[in-house]
Design a protein around this nucleic acid. Structure first.
Lengths: 335, 335
DNA sequence: TTGTAAGCGTTATCAT
DNA sequence: ATGATAACGCTTACAA
């Protein structure tokens, strides 16, 4: 490494013929510096190609200008093609870019990874922490909040910690989907539920159960984990246990996609024999056979909203503890 | 913010009854410290919950223990469901986790974003920079390399800079795919090419062109940009210009997926009338109608390999400038 | 083997 | 409005 010696504040000060303090003021946009001096300093900065040393700044300001985005899933599942995590990353990246802060991505799937995230975040190496999709009852968000470190989760923390969160309206979306099925004359409506250790899985099932029960219809459930493979297994199980079902609400588009194929293999026509509705509205949903009717969730906006909340907390503002983003039923041809 | 005062080296030293230097040695795993003293220090660290201040360490060591992963695409396109970027992120995250370094994600799609990336990376705020999928002739990788900052690109840099890179064997994969079509009796083989300002687009077209020409067959090309929408348009164009085509090689699975649907809408049966082969082997490929025959590229491994190379450069090792990862034809039912 | 002390490059507090 | 100067928390010669 040639490690060309970087210019420091000192060097700029010397070149501009002023003190370090003045250069620092100019660089940080203080207004109390005379215009001609500002000019001179800026020219020196330009000529020397000066870039502030963030470590040094961070050491004295106690800020790092970076935010951690923690994905608590196993690495292999984080980036399945449901686009949830990429969407959140993208939203967070956009919002942080506007705030000129860095995005540090951390995977906490393995015990080692989780321990690493804990060390790093409790060690205050970031100005705030974003948690995407909690699994089970992770105590970390609550602990960080108690340490006074800004935290925002996607979805209500399952351990009941008083941590700010942003979530999409799972229940509302599912309710609309199930009602739509009922209005269209479906009476044997089954669901492929998501994992019950995640808010998304829990609330989508709750939405189904409430709406179905309210309508006096039978609750028919099989469980998956949001993936296509699990959707296939769940659909087969439903078909075996309730051969007379006439509709399926799947808690994810991936599972709905698998259900579509499984139904076709079983000789059922969609939507004539069985209507299918998914949840997510991934890109692929418009390209399934038939195109999938589904509940759209604003996933990039979720990432943005979480980040905006975090920045507000970090800025010392008071924020509402929960923020809910609307979902929407997108009707295509599968129901 | 309660900003509970964090313990410093000083505090640990006092508690353990030793000097700061000794604590530092223990924390950094120096072997030259007497066992009983190590014990005492470690206990003090434990009791106080001491975590090193990375900014302070970085200031003196000149290392940041973090690596930037730059995605030069527009934010809206980075996370399409082709899984390329998420795959690279995942691979990089895995490898960096093992090396106990942080992953800083940067989007350089907009001019502002690119400028920000440039400032940040040339300012040596990271120990190395990973570039995912260059668009056009970005001079930044070359510039960083000249500054002595470790850099690795995915794919050969188009501006001819002498920068280390890792890539998948596009040409080999495409050649195998096209030969497979020829061996199965196809004679009017068209291609939906990718964008010609990206290595992946260029090389996949080159592989097609060479193999087709070598076999004395006609070159039939339409251009897309790897997305489904562009695939639909390209497939329509091909159908209009060459109604007698009997096979299509699409440079991405997304475009192949769109082609599948467009062909069906045009009344062509796949694979009977027209054989279709894609490139990527995304998860969805196994679930298209019919399931897609495609060229698999090891995308997570690409991210891992890039990261390993980067770490080797940062460690001062000499590395080969180019590293090629194998691709593989996955035969399903579309061809 | 352990301790002392000199920085690392900023920002912030005081004077001036 | 500007300039000294003291932190910030750590690593690392160098001494002992």
């Amino acid at each position: 490494m040639t490690t060309a010696q970087r210019p420091t504040l000192e060097a700029v000060a010397k070149r501009a013929g002023v003190s370090r303090a003045t250069v620092s003021r100019v660089v940080n946009g203080s207004t109390t510096v005379a215009e001609p001096i500002q000019q001179a300093v800026r020219r020196a900065v330009e000529e020397l190609g000066y870039v502030p040393n963030l470590a040094a700044r961070s050491l004295v300001t106690q800020r790092t200008d970076s935010v951690a985005l923690v994905m608590p899933e196993a690495a292999t599942r984080v980036f399945s093609d449901d686009q949830v995590f990429p969407g959140i990353i993208r939203g967070a990246a956009q919002e942080l870019e506007a705030a000129d802060k860095q995005l540090v991505l951390m995977l906490a799937g393995s015990p080692a990874g989780h321990e690493r995230v804990e060390r790093y975040t409790t060690g205050r190496h970031v100005d705030g922490v974003l948690f995407a999709s909690l699994h089970g009852e992770d105590p970390l968000p609550g602990r960080l909040a108690r340490l006074g470190i800004p935290v925002v989760c996607s979805g209500r923390p399952l351990d009941g910690a008083e941590v700010p969160y942003v979530d999409v309206d799972h229940v509302g979306g599912v309710t609309r989907a199930v009602r739509y099925l009922i209005e269209n004359g479906r009476r044997r409506i089954a669901t492929i539920a998501g994992p019950q250790d995640m808010v998304a899985g829990i609330e989508r099932l709750e939405g189904y159960r409430n709406t179905i029960t309210e309508a006096g219809l039978p609750v028919l459930v099989a469980y998956g984990d949001f993936t296509r493979e699990s959707g296939t297994a769940a659909m087969r199980q439903l078909l075996a246990e309730h051969p007379d079902l006439d509709a399926v609400f799947a808690a994810s588009d991936l599972m709905a996609h698998a259900a579509l194929r499984t139904l076709r293999e079983a000789g059922r026509r969609v939507p004539q024999d069985v209507a299918v509705i998914g949840f997510d509205d991934i890109e692929t949903a418009a390209y399934t056979e038939p195109p999938l009717t589904t509940v759209r969730q604003p996933i990039v906006e979720l990432g943005r909203a979480m980040t905006r909340q975090l920045l507000r907390i970090a800025a010392g503002e008071e924020i509402e503890q929960a923020l809910m983003l609307p979902t929407e039923l997108v009707v295509r041809e599968s129901a």
